[in-house]
Design a protein around this nucleic acid. Structure first.
Length: 273
DNA sequence: TGAGCCAATTTGCCTGACGA
DNA sequence: TCGTCAGGCAAATTGGCTCA
């Protein structure tokens, strides 16, 4: 398995977390892989064989070749149908705002064909250039040209929304909503509405996901002597609450998560930088 | 957009079962 | 004994909805 990330151009760094590629030979790990919500929205181009996504235990769909994966609030499973070769753009929680007119809330918990998000002609052109590029560097050039062009007509992301998202990411989701809003407590409902429409999650949901992601990364990198210490370090009230959150966002308990064989992708995605 | 109501959810605290 | 996992309950917080 070869998982690589690439940093965006400085002009896009406010919106794009990274570009990533994943290449896996056929049958290397030909089984279901658990995917955990990460608070980001991704634009994904499948260059290899198709990939199935399980929408129920025994029901699956073939993912579109080019698609937008919205915010997820629950785990899901995918299964490669052969060679995996993927190129993707990972947007920050509010990073997709300039690039689509759709409500990001409507994109949550599912994949949406790129043609729906960008329009059929634009999506077809972008998919063609990405699919037929010679290498990753050329794909990044294509996608950065496309995103930069779209950015020309965009003003600024709402400042309260942006600063709250930044605060959640900076504090690793460890703040209560009241603390985030201590200077604007009267704007609580406004902020929640904007979050829902433009991020696809509530502030609390994003904070929970970011906090769990931090704990998950520490768990997979053996950075805590016990689950109790991991819970404490990430500001969970106690281990019971950590486990409860963990089960809701990953679908399993911490120890089972570490032991199961659906971890190959997760292990790659959470490697130390 | 701002505000208020109220149901749903989360937090804080506690207890207990189970296995190593 | 310790670590892990789960559940109950009351209080506090959050989110959905409505209206002006």
């Amino acid at each position: 398995m070869d998982y690589q990330t690439y940093q965006p151009d400085t002009g896009l760094a406010e919106f794009v977390s990274c570009y990533w590629t994943l290449q896996v030979p056929e049958n290397a790990d030909g089984q279901k892989q658990r995917v955990v919500p990460d608070g980001c929205v991704e634009m994904i181009f499948t260059l290899g064989d198709d990939i199935k996504r399980y929408i129920e235990d025994n029901t699956c769909i073939i993912q579109p070749r080019s698609m937008l994966l919205g915010q997820f609030t629950r785990p899901f499973f995918i299964e490669p149908m052969g060679v995996v070769d993927t190129f993707a753009v990972r947007f920050f929680p509010c990073g997709l705002i300039p690039f689509t007119a759709l409500s990001i809330r409507e994109l949550a918990n599912r994949e949406t064909e790129l043609s729906v998000v960008l329009g059929p002609d634009v999506a077809a052109g972008l998919e063609y250039s990405i699919t037929n590029a010679a290498d990753t560097a050329e794909r990044i050039r294509h996608i950065e040209t496309f995103l930069s062009d779209r950015l020309k007509d965009f003003g600024n992301i709402d400042s309260i929304l942006k600063s709250t998202v930044d605060l959640i990411l900076y504090t690793k989701g460890r703040l209560h909503v009241a603390e985030m809003l201590k200077d604007n407590i009267s704007k609580r409902r406004q902020l929640e509405r904007r979050f829902s429409r433009l991020v696809g999650l509530s502030p609390k949901q994003l904070a929970r996901i970011v906090r769990l992601q931090t704990a998950l990364r520490m768990l997979l990198n053996n950075e805590g002597p016990s689950l109790t210490s991991l819970a404490m370090e990430n500001q969970y009230y106690d281990q019971a609450h950590f486990i409860k959150d963990f089960r809701e966002l990953t679908g399993t308990s911490p120890n089972k998560f570490l032991m199961d064989n659906e971890l190959t992708l997760s292990t790659a995605f959470y490697q130390k930088d």
